[in-house]
């Protein structure tokens, strides 16, 4: 199995001289099996370049499968700019955590409403199909076996464990750690006191994540914040590399990939983060890589 990163940034796209090397586009990852089955995870602005590549390779109708972690703008904004959607006969299956596939249709259709985009979803030549996922309810898509995992993010988010070709990787973004804040369905202007039930819910979510990640070769993890940034914004729904390392060590993950970089982190800062956490990971015998736009990774055999 292979993973290619098309957008590694969180929140919003950041053009400019400071992001040339790591890239400025938002969340989008492509994964493929040796036999050519492909999955797209998240539809952030990185999806535009991915679409252009797919279109160049095969300007013919195909069936694409897009797993969404959640539907915040930075994870869906690329969809209207995915050029294969404009080829008649193309089929796009979208999977997401929402109360109903119908609601997902409304939400995705909502970003191409007349006031936001010149062509509404209904007028796009591709045929869209919407599927609801539920944490823990596994599904097979082509040669992939996919397990959705509940994450801790405002209004909910899911990660995915993806098994294929006898190996596995996981997409764990967006998520806060499972300590100070339990994200629910309301706006947080700051951390709220945790009830006993909240603590139980957080522990259960953390346990389920660790269990699902057990033995995964590679985990791509939301590490938006550095520790001092997290301390100021613990209620924003994102983690630090330290928190990701802790979870991955517990689950026995072989390799951690830092992902969903803060838009304010320049290339120079990313270089420092990459070097620091590579070294810190080495101490614990876990490989820590930092994702950049265009990076391709081979996912190795199941770790033992």
């Amino acid at each position: 199995m292979q993973i290619t990163f098309w957008g590694v940034r969180g929140s919003y796209p950041v053009p400019g001289a400071a992001t040339v090397r790591y890239g400025g586009q938002t969340s989008c990852v492509e994964t493929s099996t040796a036999s050519g089955d492909t999955l797209i995870v998240d539809a952030g602005t990185g999806m535009r370049a991915l679409g252009n590549k797919l279109f160049r390779e095969a300007p013919a109708p195909e069936h694409y499968h897009v797993l969404l972690s959640h539907v915040h703008w930075d994870h869906i904004q690329g969809l209207p700019f995915f050029s294969p959607a404009y080829i008649p006969g193309t089929k796009i299956s979208v999977y997401a955590l929402l109360t109903a596939a119908d609601e997902l249709h409304q939400v995705i259709g909502g970003i191409t409403r007349h006031e936001f985009f010149p062509m509404p979803l209904e007028a796009v030549p591709a045929q869209f199909e919407f599927h609801q996922v539920e944490p823990g309810v596994e599904l097979d898509i082509g040669g992939f076996h996919v397990t959705p995992i509940a994450l801790n993010h405002p209004f909910g988010s899911v990660g995915y464990r993806i098994d294929g070709d006898g190996s596995s990787w996981a997409y764990v973004s967006d998520t806060a750690p499972f300590t100070e804040v339990l994200h629910k369905q309301h706006f947080l202007s700051g951390p709220e006191p945790l009830s006993a039930d909240d603590r139980v819910a957080l522990a259960a979510m953390r346990d389920a994540l660790v269990r699902r990640l057990a033995g995964v070769d590679t985990a791509v993890y939301d590490t938006h914040f550095l520790p001092d940034e997290y301390a100021r914004f613990p209620h924003y729904g994102h983690s630090t590399p330290d928190q990701a390392i802790e979870i991955c060590l517990e689950a026995g993950v072989r390799r951690l990939v830092l992902y969903h970089h803060a838009p304010t982190h320049s290339d120079e800062q990313m270089d420092r983060i990459a070097a620091e956490y590579l070294a810190r990971g080495a101490i614990h015998n876990i490989e820590v890589l930092t994702s950049f736009e265009g990076m391709t990774l081979e996912v190795g055999p199941e770790a033992t």
Binding site: H72, W73, I76, E115, F155, H186, L188, S189
Partner: peptide, 30 residues
């Protein structure tokens, strides 16, 4: 107003709806 029958305020509220943004509405802008 973006279109007849759709106000500017409703459109920007929709941009910040809980689906799309953790801000969950213009009223949460401090």
């Amino acid at each position: 107003a973006p279109l007849s029958g759709i106000s500017l305020e409703a459109t920007l509220q929709n941009q910040l709806s809980p689906h799309y943004s953790p801000l969950n509405g213009l009223e949460n802008l401090a």
